[in-house]
């Protein structure tokens, strides 16, 4: 488990911004701590700390301005050769519970990481993926919505 509660809160805030789900919803999946430690496990504490540090700066500089946040996140994180692929992987981790290997160019530039392979974090990481609620569906194979529900129009949450 992580030592620094503040850092975990920053992880949650970053996760919320990149996934489009509230921190409350993310906590509700029960996966936040597991994903945070997975990230540290794969990338090391220093890299995760660097990512969160940049995110804190972006947040400080943009305040409540959503358009500015979007612009600055793209400038400082998504288009950063080291942090961009990590942020994109973090989105996929939240959406389908799966870590996908970082791009070859990343590994060439920043080094191979032993645990950077394709894996599902846990059985629950799959069923708690954000992809399913995002499209108004259940994860295939779990949380069946009940007999005949599929006959009615889908209920997809507004964003």
């Amino acid at each position: 488990m992580h030592a620094d509660q503040a850092e975990f809160q920053d992880f949650l805030s970053l996760s919320s911004v990149v996934t489009g789900f509230t921190a409350f919803q993310l906590q509700g999946t029960g996966q936040a701590e597991s994903y945070f430690s997975t990230l540290i496990d794969i990338l090391g504490e220093a890299t995760v700390a660097a990512l969160l540090q940049v995110f804190r700066r972006v947040q400080r500089e943009t305040g409540e301005d959503a358009a500015a946040l979007d612009r600055l996140l793209r400038a400082a994180i998504f288009s950063d050769e080291k942090l961009g692929p990590i942020a994109r992987n973090l989105i996929k981790l939240w959406y389908v519970g799966t870590w996908y290997p970082l791009p070859a160019a990343w590994r060439e530039a920043f080094g191979e990481l032993e645990k950077d392979t394709t894996f599902v974090v846990s059985p629950a990481a799959y069923t708690e993926g954000l992809l399913w609620p995002a499209i108004g569906a259940n994860p295939a194979g779990a949380k069946g919505p009940g007999y005949g529900t599929w006959s009615a129009p889908p209920r997809i949450p507004e964003v």
Partner: peptide, 19 residues
């Protein structure tokens, strides 16, 4: 999902709408 994140460069609410 991979296409929207990696190629269409979307995140947050825009990602959800595209999905």
């Amino acid at each position: 999902l991979a296409d929207i994140v990696d190629r269409q460069n979307q995140f947050g609410a825009a990602l959800r709408r595209r999905l």
